[in-house]
Each structure stands twice: as C-alpha cells, then as structure tokens.
C-alpha cells in the first residue's frame, strides 16, 4: 500500500509548468533570521512537501507565500507575475488558500458557517439585499450552500454540520479547516501540518482527502508535515529546510538518501 501510493504520487499529475517560484527569500524578526536565502518552486498540480526540524522556518515560509510576512530580500513569482509587497487578502483572491498548524477556525460559528465563510470571496450581493435576506441574496446563499454541502459530503462531516466548531474534537476541527480552505476553490493550497496530533486512522483519512483533492480537483499543494511516512507517500517533490536554509530539494527518494538531511534529523557529531 505504502509503496503503491508513493509510486502513484511520483507518476502523478506533477508535470505542469512552474506555478510559484520563491527566489533567494530572506526573512528576519529583529535579530532572528527565520529564512536565509531560500529558493524553490512549486509546479502546477503537484504536491510539494516542505520538511525540516522544528524552528527550520517552514511555517514562516508559508506565511511569506500567502503574504502574511514580508520578506526583506528575494522575490516571489506567482502565476508568472512577480508580486509586490501585499496583504494576505490579495493572496486569497489570487487563489491561495491555507490551513494552520494550530487550528485557526472561527470558534463561535458552526461547521457550516465556517465553511460558508470560505465562500466569502465568491459572494457579492450587497448590504441592501443582505438586509432583506430575500431575492438575489437568498438565491446566492442557497447556491453557495449547495457547494458547501458537496464539500461536507466529500469530507464526511455531515453529522457535525450545525455543531459549533469549538465543541469538536481536534481531528474533526482539522477536517473542518480543510473544508473551509477547499470552499475557496484554491489553485494553490497550503497545508500546515494537517496531520499533527492525529491517530493512525485519522491520518489515513486525511491522506485520502489530500490525494483525492489533488487528483479530482487538480489542486496544487504545499504541505508541511512531520510524519515522514506520510510525506514520502504523498508528495511529488520535497524541499528540506534547516535553520532557515534549504539543505535538499528533490523527489522523496532522493531527499531520503541525502546525507545532509539525515544529519539534520539525527544530529551530527562535530
């Protein structure tokens, strides 16, 4: 099973053009250098894993990609256009969606409302119609509810549709968060440790969802994950960061055999 999925991944749809190119990006907070001159690219349709020990700058990298942090040096080219200093909502409107390391759901809202919020960018009826909640506003609401229900079906969370997300167990929260990101119909999906803190069964479910999203919807993904088994199985290419620097880049098999990667993970005698 393991090898099977791995081979499929390697032979998967990862043959598209470069979608996002990160070039010589550096980011520092005060004196702390979080990222130092990292370059890599993400090709359309692939699952790109970003791995590395704790504090290697993985989450910071995602934050740079979706415009939450602004790098001091380097360029980011997305869909052929080099991007200026930008706000996160622009990244969202360009089709970059994201899940978070520590679940960042809207705790006071139900599962349904959380996922509906993901449709915000696609809903346009103004305050006037919203005040009446009738006619076009209601029609729009129903139309997007249908899309959201499809996502709910896909993620198998029908039963918790109207539960406030604050009351859900961790694994389900992660799943709702994935649903919320999917509702944005992203072209590039950034997943920050989607399987952290999950048991084996939940991990298998989540892996299945990730593969299905990639295959069925053709969504490009950048994935941070600590579970090496998962990374090797799911990803088409892997970039390895350590202390903010890139130490390896390539297919899972290549990266796995790289001496620097082994040193970074296991430590090395000086």
């Amino acid at each position: 099973m393991k090898a099977d999925v791995g081979q499929m991944g390697a032979a998967g749809p990862a043959a598209g053009a470069v979608m996002l190119e990160v070039k010589d990006v550096s980011l520092s907070f005060g004196g702390v250098k979080a990222i130092r001159g990292v370059s890599f690219d993400i090709k359309r349709g692939e699952i790109r894993a970003i791995i590395g020990p704790n504090g290697a700058g993985k989450t910071s990298m995602l934050n740079v990609i979706n415009g939450f942090y602004h790098p001091q040096a380097g360029t980011i080219t997305y869909k052929g256009a080099q991007r200026e200093k930008m706000r996160p909502y622009i990244a969202a409107s360009q089709g970059i969606a994201r899940t978070f390391q520590n679940v960042a759901l809207f705790k006071g809202m139900s599962t349904l409302d959380n996922i509906m919020t993901g449709r915000t960018l696609k809903m346009h009826k103004g305050l006037g119609w919203q005040m009446l909640r009738y006619g076009p506003a209601m029609a729009e609401e129903v139309r997007h509810r249908e899309v959201v229900e499809k996502i709910i079906d896909f993620l198998e969370i029908e039963a918790i549709r109207k539960t406030p997300v604050g009351k859900l167990p961790y694994g389900l929260q992660k799943r709702v968060e994935l649903g919320r990101a999917l509702a944005m119909e992203p072209e590039l999906l950034l997943l920050d440790e989607p399987m952290a803190g999950m048991n084996l069964e939940e991990k298998q479910d989540m892996s299945r969802f990730i593969i299905d999203i990639n295959r069925q919807m053709g969504t490009t993904m950048a994935l941070i994950e600590h579970d090496m088994g998962v990374v090797m199985d799911l990803s088409d290419r892997v970039v390895v960061l350590d202390y903010g620097q890139k130490i390896a880049d390539g297919t899972p098999a290549v990266v796995q055999a790289d001496q620097k990667v082994i040193d970074a993970y296991l430590g090395v005698a000086h």
Partner: peptide, 23 residues
C-alpha cells in the same frame, strides 16, 4: 448572511479571516 459571517470571522480569528480574503 455573508456580512454577519465576515464579522464573526474577524471576531473569532482575524488573521485567519484575512488569509481567507476578508479585508
């Protein structure tokens, strides 16, 4: 509706809301 959800999103987790395209 849409506007109410936007407000609650900002209330519950403003950073996540902005990353989802809410200005």
């Amino acid at each position: 509706g849409r506007i109410g959800r936007k407000w609650m999103a900002v209330r519950d987790m403003d950073i996540a809301a902005e990353l989802m395209g809410i200005k």
